[in-house]
Each structure stands twice: as structure tokens, then as C-alpha cells.
Simulated scan of single mutants.
Amino acid sequence: MRPPLPVVAPAPTPETRLTPQPAKAVPITPARTPAAVLDTGWEKRIRSGNIAPDMSIDLHGHNLAGAHVRLNQALAAAIARDVRVLLVVTGKPPKASSHGDSSRRGAIRGEIGHWLETSPYADRIASVRIAHPRHGGDGAIYLILRRKK
């Protein structure tokens, strides 16, 4: 008579394993944010007003929800057309009132920074700058968009 064979448990399969496999490390690429200062060529062109917007959108007169939608549509169109400079007209801040509140901003102007930061196109924006007076000054901004990769 032969001795009984030892009982060997089957190797654990991925479905029966009790401890989960460690997740593979995925390198996190930092989100690209708009630069405060561009190279000297861009800086000179912006300061002197020798910048020509490739496209523009006028948001003043719209409510906040409508302006937000129009901004995202304009960004999508600008990126699709490989535009470098988008002029966004937000409207001038309100004049100082009789109450002396000269620090108030318009509603759209107050929200546009947040909209751009949370936009699905945020990584395509190289810089956000106040427009030259010939393009609206305090009532408009330039969005300098990154080139396609």
C-alpha cells in the first residue's frame, strides 16, 4: 500500500487573494498654471499695446451663468482654431459710488479668475493679463494660450 499523497492548497489566484495588490504608482504631472510674467518679447508687446488679439469675446451685459458658458465656448473655439491671444471683454468695474466703495469689481470680473482656474482648458492658458487701454484696459483681459503640443 502506498502512503497517501500530501494535500497541497492551490496557489491563490488574484480573485482569492486576501490582501490587495499594491496599486501601481502613477506619476503625477503638476498642472500647468498661467505665468505671471512672459518672456520679454511678449511683455514689450503687451505693455506697448502692439498685441493683436486673434479672437475676442464680449461678456459684459450677460448674467454670470451665461457669461461662464460663453467663456468656455470661446476657449474651446480658440483652442480648436489654434488662437494665441484671446481678448475677453468683461466690462469696466463700477465707478466709485457716493458711499466711497471704490474697491468693488463687476460680478463677471470678480468671477473670471475662478472660472479660468477651474476650466477644462486651464492647462492651455499660458498667461492672463489686463488688456492695453486700446483694447479695453481694466474692462478686458488677454488670455495668452499655449501652442499645441
Score class of each variant (00 low, 15 high):
P12V: 12
D82V: 00
L75S: 06
R47A: 14
I144T: 03
H114M: 10
H62C: 07
D123C: 08
Q21D: 11
S98I: 11
I112A: 03
A140F: 06
A140V: 06
H60N: 12
A35G: 02
P12A: 12
P30I: 11
D101A: 15
E117R: 15
P6L: 12
L71K: 05
I57F: 02
T16H: 04
R147C: 02
P27G: 02
K92G: 04
Y142K: 05
K92E: 14
R109I: 01
E117W: 12
T19A: 12
H135G: 03
P94T: 08
R32C: 04
A80S: 06
Q21P: 01
H60F: 13
R134K: 15
I108D: 05
L59W: 03
G41K: 03
R45D: 05
P27H: 09
E15P: 00
V128H: 04
T40A: 15
I144V: 15
S119K: 10
A36L: 14
K92Y: 09
V7C: 00
R81P: 00
H99A: 15
K148L: 09
P93D: 15
V69K: 12
V8H: 06
A76S: 13
I125F: 05
E117S: 15
R105V: 13
G61R: 04
S56Q: 14
R124F: 06
T29D: 11
T40P: 05
P22T: 04
A65C: 00
T118V: 07
R2L: 13
L87Q: 03
V37W: 08
K44N: 07
S48Q: 07
P22W: 00
A77I: 01
S56E: 13
P6S: 11
A107Y: 06
R129C: 03
L5I: 04
P12I: 01
V69T: 14
R124N: 10
L75F: 10
G61H: 05
A126S: 09
E111P: 00
Y142M: 08
R129D: 03
P30N: 13
A107C: 03
Y121C: 04
L145T: 02
G113N: 11
A74G: 09
R104K: 15
I28F: 15
V89E: 12
A76Y: 02
G110F: 04
P3K: 14
A36G: 01
G66I: 05
E111G: 01
V88G: 06
A74L: 03
R32L: 15
K148S: 14
Y142C: 08
S56Y: 01
H60D: 09
G106V: 08
P20F: 01
I28C: 09
D58T: 09
R134E: 10
K149T: 10
D123I: 05
I28M: 14
A11H: 01
